[in-house]
C-alpha cells in the first residue's frame, strides 16, 4: 500500500473510529452519570438517533457535493423553512382539499420544486455573474428568510394531516421513514459523486477550476446542477421533518447551514473544494447527533453540548492538519 493510500484510508475511517469512541465513552461513563435509567446503547435509542440525524443529515450530504465542487451554500436553512411552509400551506388550498390524500404527493412536489427553484436562483447567479457562492448564498439566506417572514409574520404555519403523520412515523424493517430517506440520499449521492461523469467533473472543478475549463468541462452547468440538488435536498429534508410535525415556525432551520457544514468538515471534506466523501459526511452527521444525545443523556444542557461540539470540531481540524503536513515543509505561522 502506498503511503498516500494508507493516509486516505486513515482519514476515511477516522470519523467512524471517532463514533466508536463516542459510543464507548457514553456507554461506560454515561451509565454512571445518566439522569435516566435507560442504557445509552439501547437499540430503540439508536434508531431514534438515526431518525433525528435525518433533517440536518440530508442537507449535509448535499452540502458535501457543493463543497467538493468548490462552493458553499448558506441559504439551506432558509430554503428548508420556505419549503416547509409551502408543504403545509399548500395542503390548505381549496382545490387541494378536494383531492383527499392525493393532496399529499402534490404538496410534496410543490415543496420540492420550491427548493429546486431556490437552488436554481443561487446557481444561476453564481454561474452567470461569477460572484463568490459565499456572498450569493449569504444574500439568499437573508432573502429567503425574508420570504418566510413575509408569509405569516411571526406566526407559525400549521396543518396536520394524519395520513402524512402516519407515513412519517412508520417504520420499515425497523428504520423510521426519515432514516430511510437519509440512507437513500447517501447512497444516491455516493453513486453520483464516485461513479458518474458529473461527480468526477465536480471533483475536478473543485480541485482546479482552470484545468477543468481547459479540459473542456462546462463549469457553470455543473454549479447550477449542484445548487439545484442541494435546494432539492433542503426541501426534501423539510418534507421529511414537517410531514410529522405539521407546524413550522418562521425561525425554523436557522443555523442549519452551519450544522451541515460542521458535519461535512468533521467528515473530512475540504472547505477549499476538490476533496471529500459522502460516506464520511454521513459519519460526521451521526457523530454530531451522538454527541448531542450522549451529552444530553449525562445531563448536559444545550449550551454545554454546543461548547463541546465546537471544541471537538476545532480539535479535529488541528488533527487533520497534522496528518496533512508534508514533513516540515509547511509554512510556519
Amino acid at each position: 500500500m502506498t503511503p498516500d493510500k494508507r493516509k486516505d484510508l486513515l482519514k476515511m475511517s477516522a470519523i467512524w473510529a471517532f463514533i466508536l469512541v463516542e459510543l464507548a465513552f457514553f456507554s461506560i461513563i454515561g451509565d454512571r452519570l445518566s439522569v435516566s435509567d435507560k442504557a445509552f446503547m439501547d437499540f430503540e435509542n439508536m434508531l431514534l438517533l438515526l431518525k433525528q440525524s435525518a433533517p440536518i443529515g440530508i442537507i449535509a450530504l448535499g452540502m458535501t457535493v457543493i463543497m467538493i465542487n468548490g462552493n458553499i451554500d448558506l441559504s439551506v436553512g432558509a430554503t428548508f423553512a420556505l419549503a416547509a411552509i409551502v408543504l403545509l400551506e399548500s395542503m390548505t388550498w381549496p382545490f387541494m382539499q378536494t383531492l383527499g390524500d392525493w393532496a399529499i404527493p402534490l404538496a410534496w412536489l410543490f415543496a420540492l420544486l420550491t427548493g429546486v427553484a431556490m437552488g436554481a436562483i443561487n446557481g444561476l447567479i453564481v454561474w452567470k455573474t461569477g460572484v463568490d457562492a459565499f456572498i450569493v448564498t449569504l444574500g439568499a439566506m437573508l432573502g429567503f428568510r425574508g420570504l418566510v417572514f413575509m408569509f405569516n409574520g411571526e406566526q407559525p404555519t400549521s396543518h396536520l394531516n394524519w395520513t402524512l403523520v402516519d407515513f412519517a412515523e412508520a417504520q420499515f424493517l425497523g428504520l423510521h421513514t426519515a432514516t430511510w430517506f437519509l440512507l437513500a440520499t447517501a447512497l444516491l449521492l455516493w453513486l453520483l459523486m464516485t461513479k458518474t461523469v458529473h461527480g468526477r467533473n465536480a471533483y475536478a472543478i473543485g480541485n482546479n477550476r482552470e484545468a477543468a475549463v481547459n479540459a473542456g468541462i462546462r463549469v457553470g452547468p455543473h454549479f447550477l446542477l449542484n445548487f439545484m440538488l442541494i435546494g432539492f435536498l433542503a426541501a426534501l429534508s423539510a418534507v421529511v421533518f414537517y410531514s410529522e410535525s405539521g407546524s413550522v415556525n418562521p425561525n425554523d432551520g436557522m443555523l442549519y447551514e452551519l450544522w451541515a457544514i460542521t458535519a461535512v468538515v468533521l467528515g473530512g471534506t475540504k472547505l477549499a473544494g476538490g476533496y471529500g466523501s459522502i460516506i464520511s459526511t454521513l459519519g460526521g452527521v451521526i457523530a454530531i447527533q451522538l454527541l448531542r444525545k450522549g451529552l444530553g443523556h449525562v445531563g448536559a444542557d444545550t449550551q454545554t453540548v454546543n461548547l463541546v461540539i465546537g471544541l471537538i470540531l476545532i480539535a479535529v481540524l488541528i488533527l487533520d492538519r497534522q496528518l496533512n503536513r508534508k514533513g516540515q515543509e509547511e509554512l510556519k505561522i
Binding site: 468526477r200 480541485n207 484545468a211 476538490g274
Partner: peptide, 21 residues
C-alpha cells in the same frame, strides 16, 4: 500545475478528464 492538471486526482482520472463524458 495551475492550468493542466488536477493535482488532487489520480493519474487515470487526469488523463481521461476531457472525455470522461
Amino acid at each position: 500545475k495551475d492550468q493542466g492538471l488536477v493535482l488532487g486526482m489520480n493519474c487515470r482520472d487526469n488523463m481521461t478528464l476531457p472525455q470522461v463524458g
